[in-house]
Design a protein around this nucleic acid. Sequence first.
DNA 1: CTGAAAGCGCTAACAC
DNA 2: GTGTTAGCGCTTTCAG
Lengths: 338, 338
Amino acid sequence: MPVRMKDVARDLKVSVVTVSKALRDRSDISEATKKRILKRVRELNYQPNWIARSLVSGRTHTIGLVVPDLMSSFFAEVAKGITEKVRPLHYQVVISISEESPKLELEEVQFLLARRVDGLVIASAQPFRNTALFRSIDEHNVPYVLIDRRIGVDANYVGVNNEAVGQMATNHLINCGCHFIAHICGPKIDTAAGRLAGYRKALSQRGLSSPPGMIVPGTHEDAGGYRAMQRLLKLRERPDGVFCFNDPVAAGAVKAILEVGLRVPQDIAVVGVGNVHYSDQLRVPISTVDQSSLQTGREAAELLLRLIEKRARGTRTILLKPKLIVRDSSARNGSDPR
Amino acid sequence: MPVRMKDVARDLKVSVVTVSKALRDRSDISEATKKRILKRVRELNYQPNWIARSLVSGRTHTIGLVVPDLMSSFFAEVAKGITEKVRPLHYQVVISISEESPKLELEEVQFLLARRVDGLVIASAQPFRNTALFRSIDEHNVPYVLIDRRIGVDANYVGVNNEAVGQMATNHLINCGCHFIAHICGPKIDTAAGRLAGYRKALSQRGLSSPPGMIVPGTHEDAGGYRAMQRLLKLRERPDGVFCFNDPVAAGAVKAILEVGLRVPQDIAVVGVGNVHYSDQLRVPISTVDQSSLQTGREAAELLLRLIEKRARGTRTILLKPKLIVRDSSARNGSDPR
DNA sequence: CTGAAAGCGCTAACAC
DNA sequence: GTGTTAGCGCTTTCAG
């Protein structure tokens, strides 16, 4: 079984405490013994037992990441961004997948808390303003940072300004010469609400309106986008531009459009959100609003580490700048590549 | 701060041991006191401290998953499969990303071992036959299961039969009427070697050969596939079918083909491997050999749990059946949809 | 059926 | 500088 400090100590005829001091490079120990101990430690391939260390220190050097899924490259990238930032500080990331289920999410968080994570990063599947989960985290005195979805709770948050996202995408479609712009919404989370608000705002600012039926509820994946687009195609006043909740939805919409023999972007221009990494390998490369997933992860990790190490307090909100990326699905004559 | 067993005990004027027994539903405790304790436990919202529990039991109920990256949906799906299987048993999964670096992988594994994970699932980035890492895991007496990549080590393994994958893909191209079939290899891992072997075998079985230059080294991502295909297009005897290491590589190859004005599949048919979830949304939906990522995760998890709980010993190899999925990139006249 | 004692591997506080 | 004592929160063992 693994070598313990006790073994090293006995071997060298010193006390366990001395070994501990050598390992943590404390000053109250002579250079000579430190050298001797560290040498033996290496020879015996001693590995500190973090479990025991955690029990004493009350810190596990573990942070929990709760995401609805990992398939959508967005959260995978967030995970990468977080890992990148915390790795040098020897923190580890435990990823929990909630599968968009508030109940499962709650269980997973309880579980992470029981595991005594030092902090949490959560892309929550909780319904808007449901604070129960967060109160329970607060009770444990564990800092947390929300990402992507805001849930209407006063908490640390890192994400894009979704209203800006909606405006940016919609303005782009207007600049492409579209007159009847539809919106395929996301699920009932604030992210979707923000994008919808931005869509409305952009239209009204440019003196356009959104005729009845032009806003259809969708989902977060391509099948939903496909069905939603089919409904839009049946409207008497067919849209000539569609702003979609995200890229998978947009991909589904494109599929529906091509299926009825219409062209993208000539007949209908399409814009998504998220810049998933395969966006430009698609049948029609999809224009999108990038929400800097990697950066979201990095910022969330940094903020969380500051909170854990008490170098920050209160709650702060970090809004990242969305960025329009124009690809074929909206590259029309007279389009602005803004 | 969190409620401890001690608090519940004091509150109820019983001993800590009794509370512990009630919580773990042991038989040597009266129904009455058990009820009383569990009630209070719920009221006080007591959560067991897994750290302390682990220190005693020597088990952390944690399993480590080491993957080269999470962006490729393959490993994300594996992670999902594992999570699904271990969640009901209250195990948690710590994911480490090695970014294809053997050195980083080694560090991450050491780290997981120091965290005393109960077991490991590894898609290793180690060079072939490099056993150092695995010896070090063995020293810790921690069971592990390799997935996807075999590394030429005698160990528990779950994955597809890569030779069968190569044969299946190549045979399919032959059946599509291709005569000059190229192969874009993967990186130097056994997975790639197996697929290459299968490619060779299929050709020779059907009396075909692979002219010089028809086998090009590639990478695991689309940029590599793109460059490799450009080289193939310059050959005097241009291939009319290409078997690619994986789907991203295939997507890159398709891009290169379309760029020079050739058609897929009419001029050149393409087959990939992996069935990434967006394969059928691509410019040309890509035919692929599915390697059942979810199932890989599930099988690996089950095997690992059996090893952890000593319900299995020795090493075993689980080979999953690959499955050909025909899409547009190889849907030629006279093609077999096998 | 209940609880006192010992200990998991480590660290903080204090003596020597 | 070094070592002793105590204790983190829990479980195992065993006496009552």
